[in-house]
Simulated scan of single mutants.
Amino acid sequence: MHVKVPPISERVRGLAHAAAPTHVSIDGSAGPARGGVDGTGRPLLLVRPGEPLHGLPAADDVVVTVDLSASRTLAGVEHPRGLLKVQGWAQAVPPADLREAAVAVAGRCPDEALFAAVEGDPAGPRLFRVDVGYVIYLTGQESGMLDAEQYLAAGPDPVHDAAERMLRHVNEAHREQLGRAVESLVGEPAPEPWLWELDRYGATVRSGLADPTLIRFPWPSPVDGPPALERALSRLLCPR
């Protein structure tokens, strides 16, 4: 059977790859969070002095729940793509991994405190990593839970980074062409069209403002790399 959308574990990992922490809950109390996600999908938290996690000894861990939020900016307005709640165990990032963790955080949350965190001074800002226990996801009309094995064994779409670049380019430079293509394919007007998701299995177009509709256009077969994805997207934009 032809697969039209990525497996949910892959989609969730893709959202995590593009997400940033917004809140962290510890012992029933919640507060804002700053950080990113490492290459394996584990949340990274930048913690300042005085915040609850800061005084945790390096060898200890504590149960936390981290909210990760992924969004897409269209016409200067952020629209939610998905919310993930990652429950696991927070522990200070080992000294050997501090620089790599800081680079990952800087991609989502640029902050001068990262320089101090890399120095490893226990009295200054610190970096913590969350070992995943399970992940609750809410994306569009779908919700559910992945255990650590399902989540960590998956990965983002192999063409994720190239897809995001192509998606931004279409939304910045080819929206009129996108609108004409969608109207031709579905046989009815497609107001305010935006390319919403792009992956190896197909493309999703968001149409409408007050009550948006998501229209999925699967590829005839999954693409095997960025060049094939670019060709598939070109065929979508120029239907015959």
Rank of each mutant, 00 (worst) to 15 (best):
residue 177 Q to S: 09
residue 224 D to K: 10
residue 117 A to N: 04
residue 200 R to C: 10
residue 124 G to V: 01
residue 168 R to T: 06
residue 235 R to Q: 14
residue 173 A to F: 07
residue 206 R to L: 15
residue 126 R to T: 01
residue 144 G to R: 08
residue 122 P to K: 00
residue 144 G to P: 09
residue 195 L to F: 03
residue 122 P to A: 10
residue 123 A to S: 04
residue 178 L to F: 09
residue 223 V to E: 08
residue 149 E to L: 13
residue 200 R to S: 15
residue 227 P to D: 12
residue 167 L to A: 11
residue 131 D to L: 08
residue 137 Y to S: 05
residue 160 H to G: 02
residue 137 Y to V: 04
residue 153 A to N: 15
residue 156 P to C: 08
residue 225 G to P: 12
residue 228 A to W: 03
residue 186 V to E: 07
residue 152 L to R: 12
residue 198 L to M: 09
residue 173 A to N: 07
residue 148 A to K: 00
residue 189 P to G: 12
residue 122 P to D: 03
residue 136 I to L: 13
residue 232 A to T: 05
residue 148 A to P: 04
residue 217 F to Y: 11
residue 221 S to F: 14
residue 232 A to H: 04
residue 219 W to R: 10
residue 110 P to W: 00
residue 150 Q to I: 05
residue 154 A to G: 13
residue 168 R to C: 06
residue 165 R to G: 02
residue 206 R to V: 12
residue 104 A to K: 00
residue 133 G to E: 11
residue 226 P to M: 05
residue 174 H to N: 05
residue 222 P to I: 10
residue 119 E to H: 01
residue 220 P to K: 10
residue 224 D to A: 15
residue 190 A to H: 05
residue 144 G to S: 11
residue 204 T to S: 06
residue 118 V to N: 01
residue 202 G to K: 03
residue 193 P to C: 08
residue 127 L to M: 15
residue 159 V to A: 13
residue 215 I to E: 12
residue 176 E to D: 14
residue 137 Y to K: 03
residue 182 V to I: 13
residue 228 A to M: 08
residue 190 A to F: 09
residue 137 Y to Q: 03
residue 131 D to G: 11
residue 179 G to V: 03
residue 217 F to C: 08
residue 123 A to P: 02
residue 111 D to H: 07
residue 162 A to C: 06
residue 219 W to N: 03
residue 156 P to K: 05
residue 142 E to A: 14
residue 162 A to H: 09
residue 113 A to V: 01
residue 184 S to N: 04
residue 115 F to Y: 06
residue 205 V to G: 05
residue 153 A to Q: 08
residue 121 D to L: 03
residue 206 R to S: 12
residue 157 D to A: 07
residue 162 A to V: 06
residue 202 G to V: 10
residue 191 P to R: 14
residue 205 V to H: 14
residue 216 R to M: 03
residue 234 S to F: 13
residue 111 D to E: 07
residue 219 W to Y: 13
residue 180 R to T: 07
residue 178 L to G: 08
residue 148 A to V: 01
residue 208 G to Y: 15
residue 182 V to T: 09
residue 209 L to G: 02
residue 127 L to S: 02
residue 188 E to K: 15
residue 138 L to M: 12
residue 141 Q to C: 05
residue 232 A to W: 02
residue 167 L to V: 02
residue 184 S to H: 10
residue 154 A to L: 10
residue 194 W to F: 12
residue 213 T to W: 02
residue 110 P to S: 02
residue 111 D to Q: 04
residue 148 A to W: 04
residue 234 S to M: 05
residue 214 L to Q: 14
residue 132 V to P: 07
residue 200 R to G: 12
residue 139 T to H: 11
residue 127 L to N: 00
residue 207 S to V: 15
residue 208 G to F: 15
residue 197 E to Q: 13
residue 195 L to W: 08
residue 212 P to A: 09
residue 104 A to L: 06
residue 201 Y to H: 15
residue 134 Y to F: 14
